[in-house]
Structure formats: structure tokens, C-alpha cells
């Protein structure tokens, strides 16, 4: 995988996780299933990318993990957005909107 593409995906993955968690707190598998579901299976988040990303976001202080019970009474680590994470999501949204706008302009130029 080329480095540039990996970077892009990584940045996007952070944003997608933050967005997912902004609706409700969720465990790892939940996050990955939700992203899969919403994107119609275009993004499949592998554990090898998911867990390092979660870890990094937690270290940055944007999300916070806590052990809880799943619907079926299984122990699972649930992540929720912190205040800092909410701010971060706002920034990411704005950046993303700019990028999309810019790229769209380029692609639609005749």
C-alpha cells in the first residue's frame, strides 16, 4: 500500500471513528460494524487498523474507554467522545468539507 494512500485513510479513519462515537458510546466491533453498515461495505475496518487507531485517539484524549456490559451481558470496552474529541470532530468536519469542495471543483472543471 502506498504511503500517501495510507495516510489519507488513516486520517479518514480517525474522523469516521469520532463521528460514529458522536452518536452513542460503542465497543470496537460495534464501531467497525457501524462504519461498514453506513458505507454500504465500502470501508471494512480491520482490527489491525482499528485498535491502533482507538489507542491513539485515546492517548490524544479525544475518546475515553471504559469497561461495560454488552447487550448480551458480555464484558466489552466501550468508547465515548470527550469534550476535546467533540471539538476535534468539528475541526475534522470543516477540513473535510474544504477538501471535498476543492477536489470536486478540480474534478468538475472543464
Amino acid at each position: 500500500m502506498a504511503a500517501g494512500k495510507a495516510d489519507l485513510l488513516r486520517g479518514t479513519l480517525d474522523m469516521l471513528i469520532l463521528k460514529t462515537l458522536s452518536l452513542q458510546q460503542m465497543h470496537g466491533l460495534g464501531i467497525s460494524r457501524r462504519i461498514e453498515q453506513i458505507t454500504g461495505g465500502v470501508f471494512q475496518v480491520q482490527p489491525g487498523s482499528l485498535f491502533p487507531a482507538l489507542h491513539r485517539l485515546e492517548q490524544e484524549g479525544w475518546i475515553k474507554g471504559a469497561w461495560g456490559e454488552s447487550e448480551n451481558n458480555r464484558r466489552a470496552k466501550y468508547y465515548q467522545l470527550t469534550a476535546a474529541g467533540r471539538r476535534r470532530l468539528g475541526e475534522e468536519k470543516r477540513n473535510w468539507a474544504q477538501v471535498v469542495l476543492a477536489i470536486t471543483k478540480v474534478m468538475e472543471a472543464t
Partner: peptide
């Protein structure tokens, strides 16, 4: 964080272990 990761390495590792095994359980359940 730096100190936490340096000196509570085992704890963090245990946490990660548990998280992964719970992930496996959830996946299997699914």
C-alpha cells in the same frame, strides 16, 4: 501518558489482551 505507558506497561497490556479477547467473543457471537 508517557509515564503511564512506561511504568504501567503490564496493566496496559492486560487491558489490551482483554479487549481483544472480548472482541473475539463478540465476533464469534455475531
Amino acid at each position: 501518558s508517557t509515564f503511564r505507558s512506561l511504568f504501567r506497561k503490564e496493566e496496559l497490556d492486560r487491558d489490551l489482551d482483554e479487549e481483544l479477547s472480548s472482541y473475539l467473543d463478540l465476533l464469534a457471537e455475531e
